[in-house]
Design a protein around this nucleic acid. Structure first.
Lengths: 321, 321
DNA sequence: GTGAAAGCGCTAACAG
DNA sequence: CTGTTAGCGCTTTCAC
């Protein structure tokens, strides 16, 4: 194993100088810099992240903290996508990923524990709530980022779900649908409010009735939502699901009620999950990998909070709508 | 932050003694042990994994190494499940998870790099091949485990896919199917050979024709496999898919050919993925969480290799068969 | 600009 | 059985 010491000897300088040269902190003469770089290159030096973490007091892992009402959220496909992306990105840095669930209420204790834990280098909050953002301890600032809503101190990235909802409505209206309902996401989740508002605005602007029912993120919620839609507005000719799983639940209920899709009722989802293609579901893409990528980089670089960074979503037309 | 030093002072012993008491390594008098425990408890001491890793020369993360022909395997749902489980299990230990793909051929270089990387505490090989097992460097022994096939030095855990295949065939035969075909998993993957062998044995034992076609693990492979099955044996009345995705591909092709499911042809999958429930697919469970759990624990404890530990799979009957 | 020296918190010889 | 003594590899004051 080649250490700082070896590079220092090869370059004819002290360990301190090599450290400064390698990390870019502190002053180093152009000449020393060149020699250190050459030596490091020649020896194939790469800093040990563990020793560095111990000396700096920084952590060696990034915690993905999913907010949710139960541990079930940790097993969903979305969590898996976020984790895979983060783990892959961090692998070359010598950093790892850990997974934790944050309780929906009173998350302060958990967040404080994370802030105190010297092994955590940064935190990515997923499905963040306002209560959670308010509870982010000062010590975590600069190394926490949110996927979803953000705050003045917590930078955030998200998909442009509002645009996706608007695009879905536009497509449905264009293809002749006039009585469009939406099964929304979980009510406690702030970032689902944007697409709902966009949906309401879009149908209202088209002069159509505004129909929404509370939903969630799984097929069961979609099924329940569809039942409610059919009960309240039997003439509905299109349903937007908050995500693909919800849309599949909607499809199951429509089939049970003998409604043809897309003949009688059109259905759209959101995510473009693998099952959307298999089930021929019209849906909008959710670039989870790009979003996670941005979030991880933001944590690593300590990016300041300046509004939410939105990633575009694209409508994928298939048989269902 | 409370360190070893604090506990030592409170217990009236040296740091070394506290270390021995806490880790359980080396001799400590019953009296000292008691006092150290009390002090540690009172102060809420918890060892810093980073300092420990630096001193011991062990890593702070566990690498999940997926074998595959392309990076696409890193994005599949299965990888996500493995990663979520591992990340959750490791969180309380202060350890993280990293994700890497191992090339199908000549994996020795990658494995050597992992062995040399001081940040890696252990490795979980997924979809292991014989070539890979042979290339496991000596330095990795005792901290590497395989999900799939194992070797004399690499312990392994897997699902009992052979039993699942046999159970599926038994169910199909019981319900009157007589011309059963199987779309197998990827040919390069050794652990898929067991269920194929079990399938062949089961149909042969029932006095039925043995029909298998090479497949893979995604819907496209299932579709291609189904086309081949229909071309070679048009009278087939049941198809086993190597996994749920494959079964969905099979379903799509059957539908396209106007075959009724389960009327004309029965279809079964394997995994019991979320989409199996949504699409009413008869399938066998794949306890990925339990398997990963066992694998991670084995890496952490350095369990010796003594044959593959198999986890049971259960048939879930739904509409498709 | 540069080097010497003092740690970060823990483990592991080595004497006693 | 226990304490002392060196480190693990890197960062970071603080003099020069």
């Amino acid at each position: 194993m080649v250490t700082l010491e070896h590079v220092a000897r090869a370059a004819g300088v002290s360990r301190a100088t090599v450290s400064r040269a390698v990390t870019g902190s502190g002053p180093v003469s152009a000449d020393a810099l060149r020699r250190v770089r050459a030596a490091a290159e020649a020896l194939g030096y790469v800093a040990d992240p563990i020793a560095r973490a111990l000396a700096r007091g920084t952590g060696t892992r990034l915690v993905v903290a999913m907010t949710g009402t139960s541990d079930a959220v940790l097993d969903c496909a979305y969590t898996g996508r976020v984790l895979s992306t983060a783990a892959r990105l961090l692998a070359p840095e010598g950093l790892g990923v850990a997974l934790r669930r944050l309780p929906l209420h009173a998350p302060a204790a958990e967040l404080d524990a994370l802030a105190r834990d010297r092994t955590v280098g940064g935190v990515v909050l997923v499905n963040t709530t306002a209560e959670e953002l308010a509870a982010v301890p000062r010590e975590l600032r600069g190394r926490v980022v949110s996927i979803g809503v953000g705050s003045a101190v917590v930078p955030s990235v998200d998909v442009d779900a509002a645009a996706a909802a608007a695009a879905s409505v536009a497509h449905l209206v264009r293809s002749g649908r006039r009585r469009i309902a939406m099964v929304t996401g979980p009510e406690w989740l702030p970032c689902t409010r944007r697409p709902v508002a966009a949906f309401r605005a879009a149908v209202a602007a088209a002069g159509l009735p505004v129909r929404t029912v509370p939903g969630g993120f799984d097929a069961a919620a979609g099924a329940a939502g569809a039942e409610e839609v059919l009960a309240r507005w039997p003439d509905t000719d299109a349903v937007l699901g908050s995500c693909d799983d919800v849309a599949l639940g909607v499809l199951a209920v429509l089939r049970r009620h003998g409604r043809q899709v897309p003949g009688d009722v059109a259905v759209t989802g959101f995510d473009d999950a693998p099952l959307a293609e298999v089930t021929d579901l019209t849906t909008a893409t959710h670039p989870v990998e790009r979003i996670t990528d941005a979030a991880v980089r933001a944590v690593l670089t300590g990016a300041p909070a300046d509004g939410t960074l939105f990633f575009p979503s694209e409508l994928v037309l298939r048989r269902s709508a």
